[in-house]
Design a protein around this nucleic acid. Structure first.
Lengths: 76, 76
DNA sequence: GCTCATTGTCTGCGATCGCAGACAGAAAAA
DNA sequence: TTTTTCTGTCTGCGATCGCAGACAATGAGC
């Protein structure tokens, strides 16, 4: 498998958030993280920790394994 | 879903490594991380970053999504 | 007994995460 | 234009990751 690239994760989260019609403010609130941090993660400028991604996936109505599967399938 | 607990991830990695008959030395070498670090992760004393888990899963012959699914199913 | 392989656990040290808070830019509504 | 909402990006700051390296304990095999 290819290398892990947090920019892929960021764009996937960004897309899923928009699909659900959520703002960064709302999603970060649901996930319990700072909005500025979520913005950085979506931009691919920060590499989120596992429990952070776990909570974001939860807030998106997914399991982390499902989120990671999307990331894997999106990884070039 | 329950909260993320790195101790569950650690015990899952530990079990999968033994099932494959790998030593910490070998697995950490395959994953490209320090053995002491892998030991800490297995013990649940350290919370590994995503790309670290990605490489460990790879070295175990799994995708991260598959590893996380096992962790989720093992999470109480 | 001894040796070897494996593991658990510690110490710095540099790099990065995640936070609160701030500021400016963009876009829409009025 | 003005107001509002949303977003992108920055600054410290404390906490944690991940490393190399070391040491002791365990267990298997001789």
């Amino acid at each position: 498998m290819k290398q892990y690239d947090c920019r892929v994760t960021g764009s996937v989260i960004h897309r899923l958030r928009l699909e659900r019609g959520l703002t960064q403010e709302v999603l970060s609130g649901l996930a319990g993280i700072a909005r500025s941090h979520l913005a950085m993660i979506e931009a691919g400028a920060k590499d989120a920790a596992v429990d952070t991604l776990w909570r974001i996936a939860d807030a998106l109505g997914l399991r982390l394994s499902e989120l990671m599967r999307i990331v894997e399938d999106s990884t070039v």
